[in-house]
Design a protein around this nucleic acid. Structure first.
Lengths: 248, 248
DNA sequence: CGCCTAGTTGACCAGGTTCAACAACGGTGG
DNA sequence: CCACCGTTGTTGAACCTGGTCAACTAGGCG
């Protein structure tokens, strides 16, 4: 886990997520602040127990949503950082499509699903916010389809790193000089549809071209402009409105 | 276009989509029935004009959501059939991530976006239904990520055909003997992240193994069980609850 | 008839995979 | 303190899936 001094609570994260679509009124804000939450710690590589009575939000650390294929192999379909609430989708009575796993040691907040569901039914702003979240995550998945389906290996990896850098900038509210990204090369491979060996070679190529340094979970991007260019990256799909993203 | 005698109206389609998450009360049903709608015809290969004042639903024919990449090439990220309302997501004031294009001649229903937005703000059932739709489409996009990222060419094509067959079955309310799928091999290629030449070879292989006949837009599946098996297909992610899908 | 689109085929090529071995590192237990 | 182990990253060589290019066929339609 990486965050500095201050530790956000589960209620903070929920209130932040729900107000992204527009300010909440006092009643909703109070209801969210009153939700009884519980925290748990999870070690890297552990699956998040899927308990349909609770929704988790990510307070600190990294999580991915993944699928194991019958043919063998794993595909990571989504990556989440502190402050994300990917699991909100499970408020709907749809079977879970994804399993979630900790990519780093992490801290999760658990909220009783039924209470959130009640909130969603009562408040227009909250249902709108939820819709917005799910809608954005659908857009990200579609960008991943395009990334994996139609880009070369080097572009794929560059594109993913661009996305993660932008989202970290947004989460911190300002452009970062360097990033802590606790993914292994195997994780990158499973997220980009490549083999770990090839991810390794691609990273060397990116390093050789002075575009990216990625070592031991530490990412730095000496030339953001050129990286964006070769990745074909356009951050619009992330909808990080308001937050100026990365250095231009 | 393919549907037989009866022609659903835009209001029919909306009411059907919105009641998938649970029965609508009389007030909502009436409000939907009262929405003023307009129909337009669109020729194959034409983009659907993106007018943020209107939401389109697909009354007849096929449509895809796609992206053009800066590196060149097109990726189809979603495919839609009659009765689908993919564009509902644009009720949110988020920039459109996808462009939509007719894969066949088709008939669209246009609904004033603001009226739908009002409905969404007033009705819990409708907001829930919308969330459900968007959530399912996110799940489908994630399955596509896994399909393109981690499956061989033959599995990818087989998987896509399985998905389309299931969705057509569901749209018609019962398993079909054969399917009309007006996609070219180039369309299949852009949806699966392959080249058209390779899609051609894969289709020959599938035909050679007596698993799939696909010619001139006509699909038949002599051995559904084996096709599902080699595709690694599991229809759960489509959430076509209630409709028994395809022949087992 | 000529044109355009969709499908088909062959030859060649390259991007990426696979396998295997090894290096670097940190953690753990004796 | 060191030996051992597991994990992650790195390298090389062989291989192969799938891409590219180019030519050709078959229909459909003005």
């Amino acid at each position: 886990m990486q965050s500095g001094g201050y530790l956000p609570t589960t209620n903070d994260v929920l209130s932040n997520v729900f107000s992204r679509a527009g300010a909440l009124d006092d009643k909703d804000a109070a209801a969210i602040a009153r939700l009884p939450c519980r925290e748990i710690l999870l070690k890297r590589e552990n699956d998040i127990p899927s308990d349909s009575d609770y929704i988790f939000v990510l307070l600190d650390g990294w999580v991915c949503g993944y699928k194991l294929l019958s043919a063998g192999g794993r595909q990571i379909c989504s990556i989440h950082i502190h402050g994300d609430a990917p699991h909100l989708r499970s408020l709907l009575p749809l079977d879970a499509d994804l399993d979630y796993r900790a990519l780093s040691d992490c801290r999760l907040g658990l909220v009783p699903a039924q209470l959130l569901r009640d909130l969603f039914h009562r408040s227009v702003m909250i249902s709108r916010a939820l819709l917005r979240e799910v809608s954005i995550s659908a857009g990200i998945a579609e960008e991943w389809v395009a990334n994996i389906g139609r880009r070369r290996a080097i572009m794929r990896v560059a594109h993913l790193l661009c996305e993660l850098a932008c989202r970290l900038d947004a989460a911190h509210g300002k452009p970062q000089k360097a990033y802590i990204i606790p993914l292994t090369q195997a994780d990158l491979a499973d997220a980009t549809g490549l083999s770990t060996v090839h991810v390794n070679r691609v990273l060397q190529e990116l390093r050789g071209r002075r575009l990216v340094e990625f070592n031991g979970g530490h990412l730095s991007i000496p030339d953001w402009g050129r990286l964006v260019e070769i990745a074909g990256f356009d951050q619009k799909y992330l909808h990080l409105d308001g937050v100026r993203c990365c250095t231009l």
